[in-house]
């Protein structure tokens, strides 16, 4: 047994101190390599191969703006949906609780792409809403269900004594929730909400199948005119990578500052 293993050295799994720490990497952290690598590659392509790539970089900025609008709009709306549904799942009222739970279960059980089609095409027959808005609503409706679980867990992570202390001072449940519980829960939910934001940024590429000209759709439009598929999708991937890395760094900096405060 041992003999046969020794011929192929297994991957050495370090435990505890043996695993390289982030700070050991010095200047070359994975994040920096990926982020600055992508930027340098973009610059190289744009200025080193201007005849192939410059046109792509000129063509897609509109798409970045749309992607950004969809992502930010959807995350803000999803936070609202999620907070309402999350509080609903903690409600003692059976009707409210049941409705919120049903929303979470149903939405989480249907693929996002199907939901996008459903809200965009199926509901679009009855109510006329602008393309980008229906994309935002569809994304937010879906992410709200995941967000509800984050808020529920965040609120439940605050010790019971906090609510009791607030109540014993004569505050109503509503006041205790908004003054005591939610401000504390916010800190707990910020990291997972940040992760949802990044996930939503990437999933927003799904709206390109609707008539929304986001980053991916702009790329597809360009590629189908010029047949430069490889070049176009290389640029698209690089831009998504730069965006997600940028925002994940921003979120981790925000977390660090929140933790320093206390």
């Amino acid at each position: 047994m041992l003999e046969s293993h020794s011929s192929q050295p297994p991957i050495e799994v370090g435990d505890g101190a043996a695993i390289p720490h982030k700070s050991d990497a010095g200047l070359f952290t994975a994040w920096r390599i990926a982020f600055f690598g992508a930027i340098v590659l973009c610059l190289f392509l744009a200025f080193g191969r201007p005849d192939q790539y410059m046109a792509i970089f000129m063509f897609i900025p509109d798409g970045i703006l749309v992607t950004f609008k969809v992502t930010v709009g959807a995350i803000l709306l999803a936070i609202v949906f999620g907070l309402i549904a999350g509080l609903g799942r903690l409600s003692g009222n059976r009707l409210i609780n049941g409705t919120a739970s049903l929303y979470v279960e149903v939405i989480r059980g249907v693929p996002l792409l199907v939901q996008l089609f459903y809200i965009y095409y199926a509901l679009g027959r009855f109510v006329k809403i602008p393309d980008i808005l229906s994309a935002i609503i569809a994304m937010a409706f879906c992410y709200g269900a995941y967000m509800a679980e984050i808020f529920r867990a965040g609120i439940q992570s605050i010790p019971k004594g906090q609510m009791e202390a607030a109540l014993s001072l004569g505050m109503s449940r509503r006041q205790a929730m908004s003054e005591v519980i939610l401000p504390q829960a916010f800190k707990v939910v910020l990291p997972p909400i940040g992760n949802e934001f990044i996930a939503l940024l990437k999933d927003s590429s799904l709206v390109s199948i609707l008539a929304v000209s986001d980053l991916l759709r702009r790329g597809r439009e360009y590629a189908s005119e010029t047949f430069n598929y490889f070049e176009t999708y290389t640029v698209i991937a690089l831009i998504y990578l730069i965006l997600t890395l940028f925002f994940s760094k921003l979120i981790s900096l925000m977390e660090e500052r929140l933790n320093d405060g206390r």
Partner: peptide, 15 residues
């Protein structure tokens, strides 16, 4: 509850 204060074993100050 406004009229009756309560002090808890685990203090329960708002952190």
């Amino acid at each position: 509850r406004e009229e009756v204060g309560m002090v808890f074993q685990s203090f329960n100050l708002f952190p």
